[in-house]
Amino acid sequence: MPIQTMDDLYTEIILDHFKNPKNKGQIDASKISKNEILLTATEYNPACGDKVTMQIVIKNGTIEKIAFFGEGCAISQAASSMLTEHLKGKTLEYLSKMKTEEIYKLLQIPISPARVKCALLGFIAVKNAISQPTECIPKRRSEAESPYSHFYPKAP
């Protein structure tokens, strides 16, 4: 196996997103308007205790706002930051069909098995936000009701 160098992983773009993350912070739930829906979910990395929370605001089936917060290594933080930029303006359908390979494409670095969870932490959180959100505003009328049924006809 070829020997990886430090620069393979900690590229300028990764370090830039780590030091100056995009869309980092919390979305103000009180500012969600009637035709919007705010979905939140958190994913954990049990190996290191890291966690990333992803929030998306959906309007007419499109991701209008996206934000993340939490603690993590350079890889998980950069991947979450890049993912938020990538997803802004995309449809829910796009997100529900999105595959892990696309995260690796965004990152453009070799991900060793030990760092897979770091790379995917934010991605799993945002996927959870649409399939099993920990918080949904406005509240669902019933548990059985899909949180975004009125925007997105088929549950993923």
Binding site: Q4, T5, M6, L9, Y10, A47, C48, G49, D50, E71, G72, C73, A74, I75, Q77, R115, C118
Partner: peptide
């Protein structure tokens, strides 16, 4: 401002094995 995972990753590139994480001690962390 540097996560222990990243420290451990770079140490590993130097052949040094250390541990990074919560060490199975969440309440302490």
């Amino acid at each position: 401002n540097i996560h222990p995972h990243d420290i451990s990753e770079i140490f590993n590139k130097h052949g040094i094995a250390i541990r990074a994480g919560h060490h199975c001690c969440h309440p302490l962390m």
